[in-house]
Nucleic acid binder design. Structure first.
Lengths: 295, 295
DNA sequence: GCATATTTGTGCGTATGTATT
DNA sequence: TAATACATACGCACAAATATG
């Protein structure tokens, strides 16, 4: 029944799908916005089971519906908070049954691109693509490979320093102001929110480094670390003496900010590397990242 | 009707799912085999729409089924090529209806953890968790943010060199042998497979660096680059004079291998950085990564 | 070609949860 | 607080497509 999606413009093809329980008068005309042609072929290839040229993986209808909605979200045609039409309307628009539509919903929901609530004023709402989802899948792969948390820390210590070093050479006054504000927030806040402020400083120095890809990757690693350290996975393995560690971190952050202010890329890079090494010290015997996907 | 899923071992509960009219006596106690307590709470939080402490997102039955199967795969209880039982059997085991089971299948299929074929001897087959899926989602986020391909190349040039530098200090004889073999393969092969061999050299130097997380992240970036450059996205923007570039790459790879053999970490790191910079040169005006998720 | 096993897609009914009155 | 309307969640049964032998 995939042709209804691919060929929604042609009423004759869709009519053929209808018969079985009473002939339907015809499908609603195609939403002109549907991507067609070569793109669909690429989509099939991307989703194939690995062997591209081997077998033609017939994309299931639900995948096509999900792909359509996904693209609308990624292209910005649907933005955060937008409500999708009710199931009945979408069923008619796409020309699919309720189960098929719901399969597509579950896929998009698992990608955190929509969230579906029931009840009055319920339905599907759109969310902006979030790096945390990519982190979940990366974490799944790492878990499968038996990667240790120390390995994740080590990776971060390799990834971030060059980016932060770049910041020292490029930083604007606005950058410095934001960094000072973030540092102050971590300094004055109570111990509980200090961790959050400290994490924000980490995110900020990477983000201001200017490379979006590194920002996303570093965010993934931070997310994995957060999930495995939030006391959920390691029953007792909380960071020792969090207050001391927090104070140490603030001191380290201050020193790094000074290096950034001075525009000393090498010093910044080295200081950041050392800071990250300290944070990851003594983790060698920790268990592997786990349950990042939940359940 | 999620209790049957949680209680698949108990035959009485599956019977209980049948009565969908009438008051339920209450929730059955949790099964011993499933992760409970804090982990379950984390799972709900992870899948929530972003606000963790705010609302309790009730996990849908299909999500629970998918999570259960996903964990079996990640924990290695189900391995590559394993065939899942037919729908009818799984329906009974989990105590769910066909549509619900199919929703779970679509989710796992979108994660490339299973592939479902129909017909005799069809059904769901298990696949090992692959970094490419994480790459798809990361690519989706990058596309949403309007990231350029040059940015991805730049990120790779920041990520890989420290890892490859580490290889120079740790390399074993086996490592060197594998690297020499990979280099030779790229040298003697025909232009077409030379690209593949060159890519394998790239993968190998990172993998032998010894950090699994970096290996996964670098694999993601390589996958994104491959997808955007395979002529699918850029109609004409193929790498200029691929033969020359290939020869240049082989030369660069040889020099880097020599530095690794010499155990010179700094030189290796710097050579690799320069090599990656060259590969990413002149991309500033290229469009953003696109259609990595298909459709 | 034909029988068989298995997924795919559909229609409809009931249950449940949520906001509004 | 209680009733009500709305919208999704889940279930069952049937027909069709597809791959194997």
């Amino acid at each position: 029944m995939a042709m209804a999606l691919l060929n929604a413009a042609d009423p004759t093809t869709t009519a053929a799908t209808g018969e079985r329980a009473g002939p339907r008068p015809g499908w609603p005309e195609a939403p002109a916005s549907l991507p067609r042609g070569p793109v669909a072929a690429l989509s099939a290839g991307v989703f194939a089971d690995g062997r591209i040229g081997q077998q033609v993986r017939v994309p299931k209808t639900a995948e096509l519906v999900a792909a359509h909605l996904r693209r609308q979200i990624v292209r910005g045609e649907l933005v955060e908070g937008d409500a999708l039409p009710p199931e009945a309307v979408l069923m008619e628009q796409f020309g699919v049954s309720r189960p098929t539509l719901r399969e597509a919903f579950r896929v998009l929901e698992s990608e955190a691109l929509i969230s579906v609530r029931r009840g009055a004023h319920g339905g599907a709402r759109v969310h902006t693509p979030n790096g945390d989802v990519a982190a979940r899948y990366a974490g799944l792969v790492l878990e499968y490979r038996g990667t240790t948390l120390a390995d994740v820390y080590e990776a971060r210590a390799m990834l971030e320093p060059p980016c932060v070093g770049l910041l020292a050479t490029r930083r604007t006054d606005t950058d410095l102001a934001r960094l000072r504000a973030a540092l102050a927030a971590a300094d004055t806040a109570d111990p509980d929110s200090a961790r959050g402020a400290s994490a924000q400083f980490h995110a900020l120095v990477v983000e201001l480094g200017g490379n979006q890809t590194v920002t996303v990757l570093a965010g993934m690693l931070r997310h994995i670390i957060d999930l495995t350290q939030d006391g959920q996975i390691f029953g007792e393995g909380q960071p020792p003496a969090s207050d001391d560690l927090g104070a140490d971190s603030v001191r380290a952050h201050r020193r790094i900010l000074e290096a950034i202010e001075a525009g000393d890329a090498l010093a910044t890079e080295e200081l950041w590397r050392r800071h990250l090494d300290e944070l990851g010290a003594g983790l060698d015997e920790q268990p592997t990242p786990r349950d990042l996907m939940g359940g």
